[in-house]
Amino acid sequence: MNWKSWGISKSPWLYHVNTGSCNNCDIEIVDCLTPKFDVERFGGKLVGSPRHADVLMVTGPMTRKSKPRFERILEASAKPFIVAAVGTCACSKGMFHDAYNCIGPVRKVTEALDEEIMVLNIPGCPPRPEAIIDGLVTGLNQLKEVKL
């Protein structure tokens, strides 16, 4: 573990990107921040700009219109960062696998841009807040073994 991954795993700042999701995963992510689940216990904090973010929380099956914007967010994010694909849509497109306007999933877009970007999959429709926290903690623990 180097100091960069140590820093991220201690207080991951989250930036939320909706790429066409149905709101379910989004409200569960916001739920994680409110008193009952409270990820600020782990140093997690929702920030307003990708330039401050350590973890991009991506939801949705990547619609045609949001893909170029998402690529710009990836370029704008301060490196190193990791991408967390929250929800079945973001992991594998789920029930929108044959929709004409969905060209995801998230991993496909990040791989086309840069194969080095680490993508965490948190499946569920929607994942419960517990699952989101569990996924994040698992991912951040794995980070300790990766050199960013």
């Binding site: 619609t63 045609r64 219109k65 170029p68 044959d98 004409y100 306007n101």
Partner: peptide
């Protein structure tokens, strides 16, 4: 409609080639 779809692409028509 997405920017990458053309002005002559009409997705909800039955004959739209998905």
């Amino acid at each position: 409609k997405a920017d990458s779809l053309g002005d002559k692409d009409f997705p909800y028509r039955k004959d739209f080639d998905v």
